[in-house]
Amino acid sequence: MRKLTFVLLIAFFAVAVLRAQEGPPQGGAQRGGAGARAQKQAQAEAAERGRKTFVATCAGCHGEDATGGRGSDLIRSALVRHDKNGDLLSPVITAGRPDRGMPGFPLGEKDLSDIDAFLHAQIDLYDMHTRVPGGYPDDIPASRLATGSAEAGKAYFYGAGGCSKCHSPTGDLAGIAKKYSAPDLQQRFLYPAGKPSTATVTLPSGKKFSGTLLLKDEFTVAIRDADGWYHSWPLRAVKVEVEDPLAWHFAQAYKYTNADMHNLFTYLETLK
């Protein structure tokens, strides 16, 4: 769990770093790649060091997660939220708040900035809106999700679910639990998005075109053929047959019960 939290911190710290900058982001092209990653990594490491210092020094009053206890909740602290690089926080840590019973802690600059990094990462963790891109819950351990019955899941796989018509635990699904994080595995068996449909378009002349379906709305059909060329036609002028490799998953998504989901996941999780 600690390791997972750490991973999360890295992810959210990047967001924090971006947000903390004043004005529009500067020159993306050069700054993107390696430099940004190294900065993220450094921030995450600082936050992790800060966490250790915090647990040892501050957690007694403010709680291990900084949500408070004997001392105040630092996630909801206006002082921490308005702090920039320790400008507000560090003086409070070093001088204490004698009037409120907080002693001063004679920490060095590095410890102070690490604690600052930890607290801002912690705030981002709490503030995170899960539908923000990159906010996907990859930190949930398989043990927490595998609350169903592997037996019932297996029965569903070979029975009511009809999964075994296309999939096999020793074939395409062999070792599947190792390939994906637990939440990814759960999401992918519910609906493994990303596989495009193929279409065969028959023209009035009888000529047929096949390829990857790019668009089919009320008016237009468009494909990319095997040679990579794009074609489109007004829908009313042609006959279109679409083959959707996910059609079964799409229909099934609306049939799963909550219990089916947990049982099937618990079964799939055994395929290591």
């Binding site: 500067q26 020159g27 700054r31």
Partner: peptide, 8 residues
């Protein structure tokens, strides 16, 4: 020109 973004 030398910079990616004009400073303000």
């Amino acid at each position: 020109r030398a910079q990616d973004d004009a400073p303000q």
